[in-house]
Design a protein around this nucleic acid. Structure first.
Lengths: 344, 344
DNA sequence: CTGAAAGCGCTTACAG
DNA sequence: CTGAAAGCGCTTACAG
């Protein structure tokens, strides 16, 4: 039994095109395109025939060609920094799943602090991304301008930009840090400290301000302060400096859970302290590990899923051409566990 | 001062094309293309002029158009599963950075166990990926066939497939598990257990076989056995079953670090055991957390970076048309820490 | 509802 | 070295 010419072509070239399907189905190439375009003007009968032929040839519309002509790639760039922080890996996973459901694909790229000119950071813009999401990453002026030129909207996740043209989804950091401060004060500690991230991070700034302001309002002296640079080793070193000082703190508010986990390790293993008795330590985020029995970290919960849902909604809105950037702040809640004492 | 027509067009349409640049530079559109193609036949003088015009207009070649015509997208699909396991998030980050350096972009997609037909899993193939890398994910027959049809090579990372056409990069699981078995036996324990992942995982199978074979060779009874399904809660439950049994083990070999961390939590916090004295627990991978003082997990190290480098090399080779799939097995090393006892 | 045709923004033989 | 032209695989007015 001899095959139809179109099928033979396909067998030879490997990947079927709309043209091949059209030949097999006995319709025009336009009809093939319409069969794969939801809402396109095509009869049910034709559609069925095209789909049958496509099935037989293993045809699927080439997204690259589609993107070229439509001007939209359905690709979202996601800038990721330090995935060792579980909040970021959790966010990335949740975001990619949510985008996937909404019909977008995730193009991840390493969000380096100071990219060289002509680095790959800019290369991704050549894929005509529908949007760029930066997960907990500082936004360089150069990259921001490149995105504007390429007409790619930027959304910062868990970070804020002062630029009114940039959308963002963040937690209520100032409020959350005040909550943690109030909780620690209720435990009647003697000396308070804050382990920050880095000065360039809006999130770190806001949490530190909330904590320090609350202390000041209660007439307490300014808390001791160290920086972690958001790394485990940085946070461990910051904790050591704090605990080796002449009058060490007995309450440490850390900029996030990852940092707090480092502080907890050092206090317990290097200084032999019982966390929750000799010293109280708080985090921020409520990552799954914070709930591990061995840590039992008191923290302020941010819902990664809520944040992600808002990002996806923003992207959908941007698509509809409702151009304005928006800034969303989401609530959270205090989660008290064993790493803080509540009474003397 | 009036602008040249080309510049005005650009200002209007937004994104400059090679045509716009050609007009401004006073050359053909082909010349513009050549200026951006390394090794293309073009004089230095023309190239300079084109680059200057491109700079002025903020032009960068549209990768979508480039991909369409060249048939190669420079896009690598990365299937990710459970990023809560730090070995996977670490691998993902290392892989995306390495691919980036090699000139590829990473398209991540949720690697669901049993995808529905027509799910997004198949949609990514329409981007004409240069390759797909599956990080610790089981490969479904349907997806494998779809990739073959779309002519997209598959590389499994930290997993093996029996299909000879599929490339893989894995650690020496059988050897590593034997090492861990030898180490535990040297500590003279009474009863041994193995917490596996799932039966469909080649990695879990190999490690379990290595462990059990070594025990058998030493004339020891078959170790107790539980499954974790690779989740924290699954591993915690498995540990509970083990420790609540009539004759509980005093040595547990876990399929990976993430699982071992759960076992350690349960043994310490729920059963009040001192890990490394009352019970020995081992992991596999040597993720950063394994080295945290609070865990001090004995484990078998796999170098994520080595594995990633091999994946990138494979992709480069596949590009050159050296079609054959290859299977690479990488060595590792035992890392002894405090979670296992070495003498009674 | 359907097909022929134009065109998305590039790369790459083909002549010169 | 350079330009005109064909074409990658689609979508989408435009007629019918």
């Amino acid at each position: 039994m001899s095959k139809a010419p179109a099928e033979m072509d396909v067998a030879r070239s490997g990947i079927a095109t709309a043209h091949d399907v059209a030949k097999v189905a006995g319709v025009s190439q336009s009809a093939v395109s319409r069969a794969f375009t939801p809402g396109a003007s095509i009869s049910e009968r034709t559609r069925k025939r095209v789909l049958a032929a496509a099935e037989k040839l293993g045809y699927r519309p080439n997204q690259i060609a589609r993107s070229l002509i439509s001007g939209r790639s359905r690709l979202i760039g996601i800038g990721v920094g330090n995935l060792r922080n579980p909040f970021f890996s959790e966010s990335l996973e949740a975001l990619s799943v949510a985008l996937d459901r909404a019909g977008y694909r995730s193009l991840i790229f390493p969000a380096i602090e100071r990219p060289e000119v002509g680095s790959s950071l800019y290369d991704i813009l050549n894929y005509r991304l529908d949007a760029v999401v930066l997960i907990s990453t500082a936004l360089s002026q150069a990259f921001s301008e490149a995105c504007a030129l390429a007409q790619v909207p930027i959304i910062t996740f868990n970070r804020q930009s002062t630029d009114p043209n940039i959308s963002s989804v963040v937690g209520e950091n100032y409020v959350g840090a005040r909550c943690l401060a109030a909780h620690l004060i209720a435990g009647r500690h003697d000396r308070y400290a804050f382990i920050a991230g880095g000065a360039e991070s809006s999130t770190s700034q806001e949490r530190e301000a909330g904590f320090a302001d609350y202390m000041a309002e209660r007439g307490l002296p300014p808390p001791m302060r160290e920086e972690s640079r958001f790394t485990f080793e940085g946070a461990a070193a910051a904790t050591r400096r704090l605990l080796m000082s002449a009058s060490p703190p007995d309450a440490i508010c850390c900029v996030n859970d990852y940092t707090a986990l480092a502080a907890l390790n050092v206090a317990r293993e290097e200084f032999g302290m019982v966390v929750g008795r000799d010293i109280s330590i708080t985090g921020y985020d409520d990552v799954p590990m914070a709930g591990w029995p061995i840590f039992a970290l008191t923290t302020y919960r941010q819902s990664c899923d809520d944040m992600v849902d808002n990002v996806v909604r923003m992207i959908d809105e941007l698509k509809q051409g409702q151009g304005a950037a928006s800034k969303i702040v989401l609530g959270g809640e205090l989660v008290v566990r064993g790493s803080t004492r509540t009474a003397r």
